[in-house]
Design a protein around this nucleic acid. Structure first.
Lengths: 171, 171
DNA sequence: CATAATAAATTTACATGTTAAGTTATATTT
DNA sequence: AAATATAACTTAACATGTAAATTTATTATG
């Protein structure tokens, strides 16, 4: 079997943690989790672009969070007056979320450190490599999404009788 | 500010989920979480190498899990008789963990699908790119670990009084 | 040897990840 | 229009991530 160290999910996880490691303490000083920060940043962009309010479903997509997680996060941030919500008039199922003035201030307070972290990473790793890494990650994500959509049972199908051949290992 | 989409942690997270997506259902069929699977695989390698037992701390490092998480996972897997533990004689603080026969059987049952998933990824993404990605991830992780060790306050240092500015809010 | 400092795990408390089930509102179908 | 199916969330239940506090055992110090 392939070596345990050669685990792509683990390599991605380690890289991710290395990247976030020295920024997280700054978030904690403001009692923010990385996920809460993602929500605030997404809402901040909505302010800047003039979009203003965002519904839960869209916010979840932009922050790459599942709705149940976002639901709890929004409740928490609303209690802290960092965001506000109202029910959409056109569709009363929808909550429209937006950043409060306090929320805007907090994002503005944290942004310099966020940018500094990126500058640090760019300096240490190299601009070209960072761009290359982004490209590879996007391509991997997109190609797998495509392939898994076409062949959702890919890994299972290989073990199927019809696929025969079977690399002589399964049995 | 940098665009929200250009978030390295989110790109890494998306890639990771894309990679694991079609393997997780196979794990769920056996009531295994990805983390439980990591633990079983690490213990399986210990069986194969003749190492046999592993203490919690080492197991945590190899699985890239924190001890509190591992502690709960081990309790769960022990109840299911997939692993066993005993107290080390040389140091009674240490638990020595090992895979049971059932555990070995389960790893052998799941391994073909795990391998198939890797073959799929290699086919879809390309062998060369996959190797390149591994290299970049390792280099990023290592360089950041080095740099953060030398300059643990890097991102903060920039906002230090000496650096003035301070956005006038901290106090 | 007694005490203090460490080390290995566990426990606690709270936030998040994740699937399934439940609510309420809108859209479809008959 | 009434019944049914969807859609947008929310809640529930359980596993994990994480920092801080605890427990128990070993090591270092006085």
């Amino acid at each position: 079997m392939r070596e345990f160290r050669r685990s792509l999910p683990m390599s991605l996880l380690k890289a991710r943690e290395a990247v976030m490691k020295n920024f997280i303490p700054h978030l904690r000083e403001q009692d923010l989790s990385p996920q809460q920060w993602r929500v605030l940043r997404a809402l901040f962009e909505a302010v800047e672009s003039g979009e203003g309010e965002i519904e839960m479903k869209v916010l979840a997509e932009r922050c790459y969070l599942l709705l149940p997680s976002l639901s709890r996060i929004v409740q928490n941030l609303e209690k802290r007056k960092l965001i506000s919500r109202r029910t959409s008039q056109s569709d009363q199922r929808c909550s429209m979320i937006s950043l409060t003035a306090s929320g805007v201030d907090l994002v503005n307070l944290m942004s310099p450190q966020s940018e500094a972290r990126y500058e640090h990473i760019t300096r240490v790793f190299g601009y070209g490599k960072l761009e290359l890494l982004y490209e590879l990650l996007d391509e991997l994500t997109n190609k797998l999404a495509e392939a898994d959509q076409k062949e959702p049972q890919e890994t299972a199908r290989i073990e199927t009788p019809a696929a025969a051949g079977n690399a002589g290992k399964a049995k």
